[in-house]
């Protein structure tokens, strides 16, 4: 255990049965937090993740809810309220990526992606304020990506929503300071996760590692380590920041 500040804290991480979210939930559980998992579709993977994490700590719940749907955001908050009565940490991690060229992107898909990746992140934070005010160390971490600062072709709503997430962090930090809620962003780079493995092969990952100043792709553990730091009492004076965990890729 690296931190002693997480014991019995209630943490909710969206999209936490694979990739960055799962690594973060695992690390929080190992450090004594009660983790509430979330997933949208894959019941089997969620069940497996919950069992795996509960071998190392406490899984408070595993909520099936789709962050692209407004009613599901409310469902999440009401479950946490009923079961735990407070929320210490919110990690807005889940995101969707519907690819497509700028000129052909359907407006319905664009709206769906903006809802999931930006508007409902705002909504989840807003609806969680009441529960977070019952915490003595309330924190929010929003997970954006390097596309918040540098565009990627065929992913316009992804880039726009990530850039919006960085500003969402700043306005939330500014306005929620009166409740002692601190809000930061972490922007990871490409990692090998089920999401990226579905669209990339080994050659793609190797090519990316080659151009990254750190010579490798991101590991979900890198992301988990940084999120834990930002949630911890060590980061009490860090607020409204965006910390890139990208091996230095934006330097190029």
């Amino acid at each position: 255990m690296k931190y002693d500040c997480f014991k019995n804290k209630v943490a909710f991480i969206t999209g936490s049965t694979s990739g960055f979210g799962k690594a973060t939930a695992m690390e929080l559980a190992k450090n004594g937090a009660i983790v509430i998992l979330n997933y949208a579709n894959d019941d089997e993977r969620a069940k497996k993740a919950a069992v795996e994490i509960s071998n190392f700590g406490t899984v408070g719940d595993c909520i099936k809810a789709d962050i692209s749907k407004e009613e599901d955001i409310l469902k999440i908050v009401s479950i946490i309220k009923e079961k735990f009565g407070k929320l210490d940490y919110l990690v807005n991690n889940a995101a969707i990526d519907i690819g497509g060229s700028f000129e052909n992107f359907s407006i319905e898909d664009f709206k769906k992606e903006m809802n999931a990746n930006l508007i409902h992140r705002f909504y989840l934070i807003q609806q969680s304020v009441e529960l977070m005010r019952k915490s003595n160390q309330p924190r929010v971490v929003n997970v954006a990506s390097r596309y918040a600062e540098r565009p990627l072709a065929d992913a316009s709503p992804l880039c726009i929503s990530e850039a919006g997430t960085v500003m969402l962090t700043k306005v939330a930090a500014l306005e929620l300071a009166k409740f002692n809620i601190k809000v930061n962003t972490i922007s990871p780079a490409l990692a090998i996760t089920p999401l990226t493995e579905a669209i990339m092969n080994k050659e793609d990952f190797d090519a990316y590692a080659k151009v990254n100043p750190s010579g490798r792709v991101c590991d979900p553990q890198d992301v988990a380590n940084t999120i834990l730091f930002l949630l911890s009492s060590d980061a009490d004076y860090i607020n409204g920041e965006n910390l890139n965990v990208n091996g230095g890729i934006l330097l190029k």
């Binding site: 100043p213 750190s214 991101c218 590991d219 940084t226 730091f229 004076y237 860090i238 934006l250």
Partner: peptide, 29 residues
Amino acid sequence: IANAICFLLSDEASYITGQILAVDGGFTL
């Protein structure tokens, strides 16, 4: 500030390089 420096130095931050971390309580907002 020491906490932030020690985190950035550590292996926990092994994929963080070339970054500027403001530790300012939100001063720059």
